[in-house]
Design a protein around this nucleic acid. Sequence first.
DNA 1: GTAGGGTTAG
Length: 753
Amino acid sequence: MSPSLKIHWLHSSSSFSVHHCLNLMKMISVAATAPNQMATRTHFHSSENPPINLFENCTSMDQLKQMHAQTIKAGFTSHPTVLNKVISNCCAHEFGDMNYALQVFDIIPEPSIFIWNTMIKGYSRIHCPHCGISMYSAMQRMSVKPDCYTFPFLLKGFTGDIALVWGKGFHAHAFKYGLDSNVYVHNALVHMYSLCGQIDMARGVFDMICEKDVATWNAMISGYNKTKKFDESWKLFNDMQKKGVFPSSVTLVSVLSACSKLKDLDAGKQVHNYVKECLIEPNLVLENALIDMYVACGQMNVALEIFEDMKIRDVISWTTIIKGFCNSGKVDLARNYFDEMPERDYISWTAIIDGYVRVNRFKEVLELFRDMQGSNIKPDEYTMVSILTACAHLGALELGEWIKTYIDKNKIKNDTFVRNAVIDMYFKCGNVEKALTVFNEMLQRDKFTWTAVIVGLAINGHGKEALDMFSKMLISAIAPDKITYLGVLCACTHSGMVDEGRKLFSSMITQHGVDPTVAHYGCIVDLLGRAGHLKEAYEVIQNMPMKPNSVVWGTLLGACRMHKDAELAEVAAKQMLDLEPQNSAVYVLLCNIYAACKKWGSFRKVRQMMMDRGIKKTPGCSLIEVNGVVHEFVAGDGSHPQSEKIYSKLDEMIKELKSAGYAPDTSEVFLDIGEESKERAVYRHSEKLAIAFGLLSSGPGVTIRVIKNLRICVDCHNMAKLVSKVYDREVIVRDGTRFHHFRHGSCSCREYW
DNA sequence: GTAGGGTTAG
């Protein structure tokens, strides 16, 4: 071994040094007292050869111990063949017990290389690489030379971390013992280097191998897949064919996986054709890989054809089809397959749950999660991210916190993705403090962590803190992206920081090389518009490098409503209707503006236009979570089981609030009806129903959290302020764009929304 | 008497 490659071996973790008599006695007594159904049928004499054939059909540790006991009784206590059989049974089988293997191993004075290899293989099988390494180290101390079986067995049990620390050392050892010309050892080294991401080292070994077999190529291709170098996988597949090496079905599966990740349909089809032309018998895994490739390339029909023709399908086949439908937004079709499949694992459940998340059907997400728990399938961290996302959208804080506890209790991997989702959930439920606690406890933060915090602070009205976070993010040398900048600009908008916003917008391109999208221009229009710089906002739209979309015009329209500029509003509305003639929000905003400016003639014209075009206003909808259940209200809703009680609570509330100075504000009522009817209409707004229900069903002092789909109206905003004062309750309303934290009669948005 | 390679999910 070269002197620069010294290996510092671990201390042996167990009892290699001593052959414990005690241990032996114990073991023998354990073996001898094991349930003994075989005793009457078999009887051995020490003069005969040991009955090693018996061990062939062993199916459990109990059986193995019985047989072991029989051999001891028959006087073969330290017969090498018997001990080998006992150990290899422990090491090779699913039921095998490595502790028992070690006990037996310990009584062998000079184990053969075969036994050492078997023990190492056993530790790799139970994913205990440190024990394998300890074995190897003990072997070294006893001056036993590894052979060409040792390294493949040992390296197979490695994880990426272990490979990174120990890999080069073992490579050096393989070299030292002259095993580096063995193809199995080579393949194991290629595998080991790609495992820890050292793909160049893997390639170095690969290139040095003279006698490559198909497994060598497979290991290298799979290494490129693991390190996400899918182009290289494809290249290597072509090289392989040029060299005349015949790919195995394993090669094709790996290459198909690369095509799938690259979304390269042409390449995928080539592989498919290869399968057909070379008459490769398509096995289950290969067919699954084909389905996955076609799904990834958006060829659902082809994928389905293969799926339908399959003789045997497994849970992966079904899940891949489900994922395919989910990706194309056809979640109901996906659900049909999900309901139909013979058995579901946690990945299938997560796939369908994620499908519902993607189409924003969050209540169904929670229902499915309950079903999943009902069927005793344990969720993993991926599932948790989907559920937390649903909680975030629904404002389901109680359930979100329950999930957080569930993750800890069930030892679900609490990785950065999960923590990011928890942070997002807390912010979107309006709990800024807890979101920041999770953030502060995180040791590893990625771009998404910082972005979640910046956006979260911004929508909760902490604009300055959001910008402070942004500075800290830059100090931590994490590069902001487009989404981060949306959060940053949003922070400026919601806190009225016009100058900062302008500066940050220009630094975006000059300092961080992020090209603004139409959404960023929308933010700037929002920033200027809300602050009353309507003309400047309009100029930005006229000069932006891309075609303004309906959102940008809508933003300007909203600013016009806020500052009562009917003239510019008409310009914006016209543009918006050209782009989206069916968008009800335009008509509603325009009506609001005309009403605010008391232009009743124009108001009626727009109303008529809506009727003629059959446009209906998006109904306002509010959610509130009580005891882990999300309750949904629309304006004038009478469908809630406690509807009667809720309305009488609302009446009582309005009476009490009126005596505290509440005066209904109907200026935003869209309907062309009398004042009294308008008042009745605002009293029945969904957020008022939700707040009344919240007061009704929670104890004093409990925070009321409401999620509203549209922007909160000025009357509900007034009322919520008074509720927070009169009932001494914190009320948090998340509307379409931001949070309103109502405390002691005032709102965090400072009337700026 | 012992060996190597693969598919599904943010």
